[in-house]
Simulated scan of single mutants.
Amino acid sequence: MANGDRGMEILLHLGAHRTATTTLQHMLGQSHVGLQGAGLAYWGPKRLRAGLFDGLYNSNDTLLPRKVDRAQARIKLQARGIADQGTALLFVSEENMLGNMRRLLARTQLYDGAGARVARFAQGFEGHGMTLGLSIRCYDAFWTSVIGWRLRHGGTLPDAALCERLITQPRRWRHVIADLAQAMPGIAIRVWTHEAMAGRPDQLIAQLTGARLVMRGQDAWCNPTPHAARMIEECRDADIEGAEMLPQRAGRFMPFSIHQRAILRAQYQEDLDWLATGAGGLATYIDTAGAKTPCPTEQGRGRPDDQDDGWLAQAG
């Protein structure tokens, strides 16, 4: 799916989940006037999940062709409408285009089938220039955050078998990127890390859109993983048996052992090295040179976080 004659530019922001995506969406939603003044428009989950993308979501990827066609036709119609209003770039942010978090843990694989899934959504924007945006995160923090989300939504406590499967599952961020590139050849992919850019939304927006905006809502932090004590309390309230046994380290929820975390961080470092050396021509790595974080935090904002202490994120 290569870009032909470029109309309006489309940025499909794919998340990933648990990489400050909700916070960025909140800020974009609060900054309508500034975006409009720069010739930009924003579509986020509130709009997309309220009907526009209906027919394209399915956790098992079993979709009815007629519903897919209708959804893509709706997208084309609405995109054409804002293009006709003079919009230069449409920022579309929806992490469930990659797949949902329940699927991640049910299949214990990192976004398997992501390329074909995202291509269904991208098809609705044909006729416009297109770029994919992907934020990635170190595996120990990423999987811990996904497991924490599941616990807070009625899931079960993580066990040793689950942690081992997440360590040995074969997919890495570089495989997700390769899937996207193969499914949508010719479409640019831009990649950044949660560790370097989550606390720099203004820089990220400038990198992705070329516009320097004053973003509203920068002080908000949406949907963070709580400390273990709060998670234990929430699990008790939800009658999840064994909540007191939640694994933790220095007050933080952490299901992985020190040895397991070292393995996951080494896997992530391989991804960063691959990105820093050109990603095989498949993607552009956009972490800014000044955004290296000697001690990355869960929230990417420089506050101490024992989940990430003592580890250097190679950001550029």
Rank of each mutant, 00 (worst) to 15 (best):
51 G>V: 05
10 I>K: 05
65 P>H: 08
30 Q>C: 11
29 G>W: 07
61 D>V: 10
50 A>Q: 14
9 E>T: 02
58 N>D: 15
35 L>S: 08
72 Q>A: 08
75 I>E: 02
53 F>Y: 13
73 A>N: 07
39 G>Q: 09
25 Q>S: 03
28 L>Y: 03
36 Q>F: 12
68 V>S: 09
52 L>F: 11
42 Y>L: 12
34 G>W: 06
12 L>P: 00
40 L>H: 10
45 P>C: 08
14 L>I: 06
63 L>Y: 06
26 H>I: 12
10 I>D: 00
26 H>W: 10
14 L>D: 04
76 K>P: 04
63 L>F: 05
35 L>P: 02
61 D>P: 10
47 R>K: 15
60 N>M: 12
33 V>S: 15
22 T>E: 09
44 G>S: 13
59 S>M: 08
55 G>K: 01
15 G>H: 01
17 H>F: 04
24 L>F: 09
55 G>Y: 01
16 A>C: 03
88 A>E: 14
54 D>H: 07
81 G>D: 15
57 Y>T: 05
67 K>V: 05
41 A>W: 01
59 S>F: 10
84 D>V: 01
10 I>N: 04
58 N>H: 14
30 Q>A: 13
56 L>K: 09
33 V>K: 15
24 L>C: 07
57 Y>H: 10
60 N>C: 10
61 D>I: 07
37 G>T: 04
